[in-house]
């Protein structure tokens, strides 16, 4: 099997993680032939709507259900739960023409999830290894770092807006990544909806903190319009400024070209 790339999109809430994830997947699908798995790792689950996809069940729902069945002794005594769980997770995968989508959701209820989470990690690792690119829309919280949901991530993209809080969150994410020894190949920062005039200052601030600033996405009225109409961002016209900006960013990271992509993965 070929080498796989896992990209995770993090940052403070409301900075534009979900929007950027949707835009980037749109670019990857139109400019490359790579198979794509999208993972909505934010319990709020905004990504399906941004993509215009319906989900019936989240992985969290399934895990909760499994835990409940364990408690009530409803699972067959001599069958292995890992097999049952894996089957059910695969069932919750939304299989599209262009990409597949998995919504993580959240687990509910008490009881120990150590085992269930362990199974989940194994199952997800196996699943992601089937796609050329896995793109994860993370939650604003940082607990996924300590839970090491990110542990197989190659490229960590941090989205910031012009707020101080978003900037500070970026620095915290960078530090946390080091603390928990996740070996990202690259950590990159994207500025979303930041006024042109602020860019030089922002760029300097990021540089001083050793953060790799790779591009900006402009405020896009068309996004606002689709938003208002309740339509998926995925329907943005090709010529949209935000889409052009993300295309440039994808190119800059090296995602659109076979040679640069291999370099990104550390294969010469």
């Amino acid at each position: 099997m070929r080498e796989k790339l896992v990209i995770s999109v993090s940052g403070k809430g409301g900075t534009g993680k979900t929007t950027f994830t949707a835009l980037l997947s749109r670019v990857l699908l139109s400019k490359t032939k790579r198979s794509l798995l999208l993972v909505d790792a934010d319990p709020v689950m905004n990504l399906p709507r941004a993509l215009g996809v319906d989900i019936s069940k989240s992985v969290g729902d399934i895990a909760t259900e499994i835990r409940r069945k364990i408690d009530n002794g409803e699972l067959p005594a001599s069958a292995a739960k890992q097999d049952i769980f894996e089957g059910e997770i695969f069932e919750s995968l939304v299989e599209g023409e262009q990409f597949d989508l998995l919504a993580m959701g959240r687990t509910e209820g008490e009881g120990c999830y150590c085992y269930v989470n362990r199974l989940l990690t194994q199952i997800l690792d196996r699943l992601t290894s089937n796609y050329d690119i896995t793109l994860m829309d993370m939650s604003a919280g940082l607990e996924h770092f300590s839970r090491r949901t990110n542990r197989n991530v190659d490229v960590l993209i941090i989205v910031i807006d012009s707020s101080r809080a978003a900037f500070e969150a970026a620095i915290r994410i960078r530090d946390l990544a080091k603390e928990v020894h996740i070996d990202f190949k690259r950590i990159l920062v994207i500025a979303n909806r930041v006024p042109e005039s602020l860019i030089p200052l922002l760029s300097k601030g990021l540089e001083e903190n050793g953060l790799d600033f790779i591009g900006t996405v402009p405020e896009d009225d068309k996004i606002a319009e689709l938003n208002y109409l309740g339509k998926p961002i995925f329907e943005l016209p090709d010529s949209s400024p935000s889409l052009n900006a993300v295309t440039e960013i994808a190119e800059g990271i090296g995602l659109l070209d076979e040679v640069t992509m291999m370099k990104l993965l550390g294969i010469e």
């Binding site: 835990r67 364990i70 408690d71 005594a77 001599s78 069958a79 292995a80 739960k81 890992q82 097999d83 009881g111 120990c112 150590c114 085992y115 269930v116 194994q122």
Partner: peptide, 16 residues
């Protein structure tokens, strides 16, 4: 934790 039976253990140990 009530989650792992002897059969689950057997399956897991074989895989990993």
């Amino acid at each position: 934790c009530g989650a792992i039976s002897w059969f689950d253990g057997r399956a897991a140990a074989r895989v990993d």
